[in-house]
Structures are given as C-alpha cells and as structure tokens.
Design a protein around this nucleic acid. Structure first.
Lengths: 249, 249
DNA sequence: CGACACCTTGAGAGTCGTCAATTGGTGTGG
DNA sequence: CCACACCAATTGACGACTCTCAAGGTGTCG
C-alpha cells in the first residue's frame, strides 16, 4: 500500500485551483469565488508520481478521479489472458477515472508515462458536491459524455481505418491537445513509447515504426525518437479523411 | 419535422414507471414511492416508432435521453465522407443518448430496428432532478461510466480480435442481454441486419456471413436468417478468449 | 563500456476486404 | 396466382494490408 502522504492542514495547496492554469479545462466553474472554494475543499492536490508508477490499479477499490496537472498518464486494461490493452492517454487538464464510476473497483490501471502530478477528487465528496452545484454536475455529465464520444471515435478509427489513417489521427489529436495548452501544435515530444501507440491503435509496433518513416519520407513529419515535428498538418488531415474516398493514389 | 404528438394530460401513462417491468434496469430507484413519482413527473412515455424511423438525428438539437421500452434501436455516426459507423445497439431497459450530453446537438443518429416504444427524459428536467436526488445522480454516473467501459471493450474487440472472436462476443453479449430480460439466452431473433453487425464490428458483410456458416458447421450455432440458436455457449466463450492463447486448436 | 530497452528494417504468411455471381425471401403489380 | 423486381444473404476467387518472426541499429543508464 502506498504510504499516506501527509496533507498539510492549512496548506497553500488548497487555494491553487484559483491559480491553476488548467482550471478552464479540468472542472471549469462559473467565476463565483464561492464555487471554486468548495471544489478546492475536496481536492487533494500535489500528488506526484514518477515515470512508471501507478496512479491506481485495476480491480482495487475505486476511490477517486484524478486530474492531470502536469506530465501524462496511460490507462490500460489487463485481460484475463494477461494481455494489455491501452485505452487512453491523458494530458494535463484531463480527468482520469470516469470509466470506473460504475463499479466498486477501478476498471483500468493508470500509469504515469513521465513524472506526473495530479489532483485527486475523492468520489464520494465529488458526488456530494455535484449534487449541490448544478453547473458542476452538468460539467461532469459533459466530461463523461465526451469520453463516450472519444471512445466511439476510437472504435471507428480501429474498425475502418488503415494504419496510416490511425496514426495520422493520433498525431493530430495530440497536436490539438498541446495547442489547447498553448504549446506548439507542430513541435512536441511524444510522452508514450511506440509500443503504447501500437497497442492503443490496434497495430503491431513494427507497423507504427514503418508508418512513421513513410510519413517522414513523404515530408509530412520529422521524427527522431519521441521528438515529433508536424511539417504538413493539412496533408495529415487529408490522410485521416482519405479512407472515405475511393482510389487513394 | 415530426408532428408533435399530443400528450394526454392526466394520462394513465404517467403512473407506469411503477408497473414497468424494466424499472430495475432503466433508472432504478430506492423503493421510495416519492422518488419514483418524481421521475414519472418528467418522463414522457409511450412514444412509438416504426421500423426505420429515427428517434433523433445527428446534429439536431439535443433535448432528451430515451429509454427503450420494447423493440430495439441502432445508433450510428455519419462521417463527413457520408459513411455510416454503427456505434451501438440498444435493447429494452437501456438508455440511449448519453453520448450526446456534451454538446448542443446529438452526437449520433438513433434509428428503430423494429417497432419500438421509448420513454423520453428531457435532459433539462433530468439534470434538475438528479441534482435533487443523489441516488439518481449516482445512477446516471453509473450508466455513463458503464457506457464508457462498453465502448472500451468494443475498441479492444476491434483492435485485437479476429472476425470469429468479434462475432462470438456479440452473440454472447446479446444472449446475456436477452437473459437479463428473462428471455431465452440461447434462442432469439437478431434485431439487426448482417450489414449492421458487420459495420458495428468493423467487418465486411461477407465475412460476417462466412463466420456464421463456419460457426454453424462447427455446431456452435444454428442460424436461419435472423433467427439464431446458440448450441454451444461454452465453445463460443472459448472463442472469445482464444486470442490470448497461442495455437488456437 | 556493456546491458538493456526501444526503435527500425526486411521477408514471408495469413486474415480479411473487394469484386462478382448466385440464391433466397418479400412485396408489388399484372 | 404468378412474374418480376428488389434487397438481403451467401459463396467463391483473388489481392492487399498488416502481423509475425528475425535481425540489426540506436540510445540510455549503470
């Protein structure tokens, strides 16, 4: 069991939703001071995980949802056969654990892909709070609904698209998520290994690798290890839509 | 636009959550009379759709979630290219529209696969009600979370499993959903066409057809058109797990 | 510098999609 | 009542994308 981290009683952490640069992404609230404070009351901030550490584990009791403050998280399901299936990547401002709200235990395992800090929302307190704050409740519905849609999009990608289309879509998704945080949308470092990408997209590692080099040869991207530069975003967007046409060259 | 269906003011419909055989599936509540009545107050019951009719359309304003009373519903997304992607099948007792709670418009189109009756939950009233009833709110979280998990399961199926495994999984899923309604889990009629199955599972129609006949030849099922009989449920379950082993057969 | 994990590249095989033709069931109209 | 059209489902042949297996390359950390 993880050593309990002592929570400072009157810590400066408590006030930081106010200052958090992600407050508009994570659980945005009307700018009423009052509301934000009530949220801060239940949040446990500043938990930090090193690369590879687990934020929570599949089949252990479900206690909290987590918002990513910095770093990134990979969620995955371990099947009976022991195989891993990556179900998502979570970047700063995104909420992890929404898929676990239907059972006593976590539905997946969450692992830090790099040094990652999170805010913890104990589920009981969160539910209690959303019961009192219609806007917060609405936002929870919004987030969960969004997650369903994302998952449907992923299913579409997996069921209908080629390896190139899947990878182009992932790159563009990451790009727009970096952009949302006011980081460069064309020049970033992948937080996950090729293996994770392959697993997530339902491909073999070798295929991912081949597509990366193919994209590079076509001048769409420049990639060195995890460093990626998108050279031709439009072309990538075309790739993701290409499958609906007939004769791709 | 659909002609508004006149709602009878003091209709006998209003009381029927009490009598609905699906009340334990749809939005189960503690057996407090009071609670159930408040739910009934906001539900519009008894809307009936013929086969092929749309319950709602993608990109039209999102107003309500719908519970299936009888019949069945197919949801699908139409891509920019005009392609259809089936995202789910909904049977009696299941709630449709949860993926649309994050936007102004429906995220998908819902179509009746047969003559289907539904209960309508106007979203504004539902949110208002869940704000007052912690148990109902909890159940909404539960349902949405479940939907996320289902979608992840689907993504897993699509990304890692063969055609046989996908179809076996679908048959077993339908089986258990029939069973939950106290219908035969081994002898039922598919509400959807082969085409829909194929689309949903990311396969070609021809492949679905081939797998059906293969299963039939192996004595796992008996199928004539949409009538299906599961002859060897255990074998089907084995098929769905088979992929995690090495040498199948 | 060596061990190790990660990534890349190559060759061959298999599953499934595409194209095409046939069958079966259903509804319409003569 | 039968003929025809139409659509859903089936079956076969071929081709392609991607997986598997195998080896080589690159980077990192002790």
């Amino acid at each position: 069991m993880a050593q309990a981290i002592p929570i400072r009683k009157n810590s400066p952490l408590k006030a930081s939703c106010h200052e958090c640069s992600l407050s508009n992404l994570c659980l945005p609230l009307a700018v009423e001071e009052n509301d934000l404070e009530r949220l801060e009351d239940i949040v446990q901030q500043g938990r930090i995980f090193n690369r590879g550490e687990h934020i929570f584990d599949q089949s252990t009791p479900f206690r909290s949802c987590f918002a990513v403050k910095s770093g990134s998280i990979k969620t995955s399901i371990i099947t009976e056969g022991g195989e891993e299936q990556v179900t998502g990547f979570f970047m700063p401002g995104e909420l992890v654990g929404l898929d676990s709200m239907s059972g006593e235990t976590y539905a997946c395992t969450a692992k830090a892909l790099e040094r990652t800090s999170v805010c913890e929302f104990p589920i009981e307190k969160l539910e209690e709070l959303t019961g009192k704050m219609p806007e917060l409740q609405h936002h929870m519905y919004h987030l969960m609904s969004q997650e369903i849609q994302n998952s449907h999009q992923l299913a579409m990608l997996l069921s209908k698209n080629t390896a190139e289309e899947r990878i182009a879509a992932l790159l563009l998704s990451l790009s727009s998520r970096f952009q949302r945080r006011r980081l460069s949308p064309t020049n970033f470092s992948l937080p996950m290994a090729r293996n994770d990408i392959a697993n997530f997209l339902g491909l073999a590692v070798e295929t991912v690798s081949r597509v990366f080099t193919r994209f590079q040869n076509q001048g769409l991207i420049r990639a060195r290890g995890r460093e990626v530069e998108l050279l031709d975003v439009e072309a990538l967007q075309t790739v993701t839509r290409e499958f609906s046409r007939q004769g791709c060259q």
